[in-house]
């Protein structure tokens, strides 16, 4: 198991936070002795779906199931699109974001761009904290020189995607979404990151999607993404 003192979340959420990523070879007795020593105010447990004995165990300790995080990957091979998918795909372009574009993105986030994540849906945290968390994250990604791209519909900003890579081969699509003006329009079906990563010289792109966002999961699947792994996410708030 990997235990991380998520200090960035303390800045975002105002409470000490620990994240535990269980691994497939973890034994229940080891987990039991470790987990009881944790004293952070907010603890997030990520449990691979193969470890069903752990899900029952953390539930008994008062942890609440909040979502599954589904890791998907794309090998960048061209997919066959339906005629409608292709028309929408062809209507969208992309370009690198400017500083002004990033400022616009922050306004969209402050306006409630994200609604399916575990912080937004946690009654312990208010929506301001959830959007502040994303704003801090975007600032961090700017500092880390992540790849910011703007998606445009007929030249008009319609959404964004932010990518990171450690080796130039596998890119991680860490954050993305559609802007308010183009929400509920069907344009969410258009995924340009495969094209972007190919142009950047990468061989694969990965991303994660919450089970609380089934529409996005369907969109990823129809764009050729395949499931690589699933973690059950449990959380606990300590007094």
């Amino acid at each position: 198991m990997i235990i991380t003192d998520a200090c960035w979340e303390e800045r975002n959420l105002g409470v000490s936070t620990v994240e535990i990523q269980y691994e497939t070879n973890d034994k229940l007795e080891d987990v039991a002795s470790k987990i009881k020593t944790l004293s952070a105010k907010y603890i997030v447990c990520k449990i691979p779906t193969t470890k069903s004995e752990l899900t029952s165990y953390v539930a008994k300790l008062g942890y609440t199931y909040v979502e599954d995080m589904i890791l998907v990957e794309h090998d960048l091979k061209e997919i066959e699109r339906s005629r409608m998918h292709q028309r929408l795909y062809d209507s969208m372009t992309y370009r690198e974001m400017t500083k002004e574009d990033v400022e616009y993105l922050k306004k969209e986030i402050a306006g409630g761009l994200f609604s399916t994540d575990r912080i937004t849906n946690d009654p312990f945290f208010d929506n301001t904290k959830a959007s502040d968390r994303y704003l801090n994250w975007v600032n961090d990604l700017v500092e880390q020189e992540a790849f910011f791209y703007l998606n445009l519909y007929k030249g008009d900003p319609a959404g964004f995607v932010i990518l990171q890579t450690k080796d130039g081969i596998v890119y991680n699509s860490v954050l993305g979404g559609g802007y308010e003006k183009y929400r509920n329009t069907g344009l969410g079906i258009v995924q340009k990151e495969q094209e972007i990563v190919k142009r950047l010289g990468g061989k694969r792109v990965e991303t994660q999607v919450s089970s609380n966002n089934p529409g996005q999961l369907r969109a990823l699947e129809i764009n050729g993404y395949r499931t690589k792994g699933i973690n059950h996410i449990f959380v606990k708030h300590n007094d």
């Binding site: 339906s82 409608m84 929408l88 209507s91 529409g215």
Partner: peptide
């Protein structure tokens, strides 16, 4: 959702033998 929307617009186009402009596709809310 966005996947269903594609199927819907395709079905409407087929039913009435038309081809909708993308502005209309995204406006069909």
């Amino acid at each position: 959702d966005s996947v269903g929307h594609m199927g819907l617009v395709a079905a409407i186009e087929d039913a009435f033998d038309i081809m909708m402009d993308t502005d209309d596709i995204i406006d069909l809310s």
